[in-house]
Each structure stands twice: as structure tokens, then as C-alpha cells.
Amino acid sequence: MKIRNLAAAAAFAISAGGAAFAAEDSSDPIVIPIHNWSSQIVMSHIVGNMFESMGNNVEYVTTDSQAVYESIRLGDVALELEVWEGAFGASFREALERGGLHDAGDHDAVTREDWWYPMWTKDACPGLPDWEALNDCAHLFATPETGDQGLFLDGPVDWLKHGKERAEALDLNYVVVNAGSAAALWAHIGAAEPDRTPVLVFNWTPNFAEAVWPGEFVEFPPWEEGCDTDPAVGPNPDALHDCGNPADGYLKKAAWDGMPDKWPNAYALLKEISFNNAQIAEMAKLVDIDDYDPEEAAEIWMEENEDVWRPWMEAVGS
């Protein structure tokens, strides 16, 4: 209810400012998908609140973060606020080819996903973050099951991170195990924390983990175009996946092709919106560390960052 009040107040403020929208938005609810990580949920609510303050109806549905592109294509949901290059680039491109959705611009934020370790690991293996130090430190990452090989905990198989291939391509003395979920990755780091046991896991930014466990990405041979398709690219001439992931991946917005016609004003706002890494981390922190509900977190963030979102609204309002 409080959210609604705030939104109403904002709507009043804008209409009082003499804003006149070019065309009417449909009164059908704009369906915004939310996934199972906090920054995306909070960001979705922030944008949803802005839509509501323009007089639109908004609804949130929880969806799978890969399957969502199919839903956008069909118009079941209207947009997606966090399209990560590394994680969802493939699903996004595939849906793009089949038609029905389009790229609605980039956020300022850049994304990165790669092999990562919490800072305490560096004490035991000072050669990091250079990847060439990995083999010397392999014994540090060993577990009862891996013998003298190190353990690298990769993301779930469906994230298609090619950890095994990279370990082979770069001749790393590591056993690559796939976690079943993001939560399993955190549990693995969390278990290592009290004793500051060295661990090597798959991780990405921006997310809440950087606030809990400061850490660094391993610096692999830098990404070159074609590293995943052409064996010749990268240090190992006979293997694919022999370099790191792009260090500055995009974070996009995607929209259903029908959105500009159905909700022209909301769509115009969507094009304006652009968050940066710090803002996204702040959103995650409000939920993951400060323990607010995402709705409350969105409300708090908007109270504290009016100077960020107000200009976007004014840009489309005038």
C-alpha cells in the first residue's frame, strides 16, 4: 500500500508538472518477469513503481531466467531488465533470431563471470590472480574426493560455462565439479569461510557476494572473439575455450516487439533507464544483507536515489 501511495504521489507530481503524454498506454497490466536473484527483483519493482506512477498497471511474475526470453517473444511478459551477456546472451540471441523481442538498450553496468576466489585464498596462493599460478596451488584446493588435484566448483551445467573444457585446454590440474544451483556455490564458499580454506568457484558481478566475501576473478588469457568457436584463437592452438570470459560484458534490457505500440510511454521510459554497477549492488545489498523484502527494498532505494530515477521520468514526461 505504501508503494502505491508513493507511486500516486509521484504521478501527481508529474502531472502537476504539466507533463502530457503523446499517446495513451493500454490499461492492460505490463507484466514484468522476476527471477531468483535479488538485484533483478528489486530493479523490476523499481521500474514497475515508475510505470505505476505513470498510471500503468503492473504485474510481476516469477519466471525462469532462461525461459523468460521465450515468454517475451510470445508477449506473455513485456520486458526483461537484466540480460547478462555471459549467462543469458545465448538464449537472448536465439530468441532474437526467432523474432518477437528486441534489444532495448544497455545499462551502464558491465558484467563479468569467471573463475573466482575469496580474498583469503590469496594468502595461501600469492601468485593469484594470474591463472598460471593455479597449477602450483592445486594441492590447496584438493578435497578428500579429488586426491591431489584441485577442485574447481563450476556453475550449474545448464549455465554452459565450459569449465571442464577450459581446464583441459589450459592443462590445469583440476577436477571440475558442477554445482546444482547458485545457492550451492554460496554454501561452498560459506563453508570455507570460518577456517579461511582456499576455494575456487564460479562467480559473477554485480551480485551480493562481493559485499559478503571480497574476492577477485582469476585472470585468464584475455577473451578474444572466436575463442569458443575457433581452436586457433587463444594460447592453445588445438583447443577451444582456452581464454577467460569477456571482462566487460554487457547488461541489456530486452522488450517485447509489441510493447512500443501497446505502452508507448512506458516503453520510452524503459529506453531511458540505465543502472550502473554500484546502484545494482546497492539494490542487492538491501535485500541480501539488510534483509528487506524486495518491495520494501525498491521503496527504500527510490527514496534514497530520487536524483537517479526522477530525471528519466522527466525525460519522457516532457
Binding site: 536473484w37 516469477t62 545457492a183 535485500v287 524486495p294
Partner: peptide
């Protein structure tokens, strides 16, 4: 919750994804 059912399940999954055991 894996297919978009809101509520307790979805919140449980997102709590787990941010490693909040208490919640």
C-alpha cells in the same frame, strides 16, 4: 516456484540464492 509460482516458494529460493539460511 521454478515455473513462476509466487509466494513462499519463490521467496525461499531467492533467499537460498543469496545464502540467507535464517530466512
Amino acid at each position: 516456484a521454478f515455473i513462476g509460482m509466487p509466494g513462499l516458494g519463490a521467496t525461499l529460493l531467492s533467499s537460498m540464492n543469496s545464502f540467507r539460511l535464517g530466512r
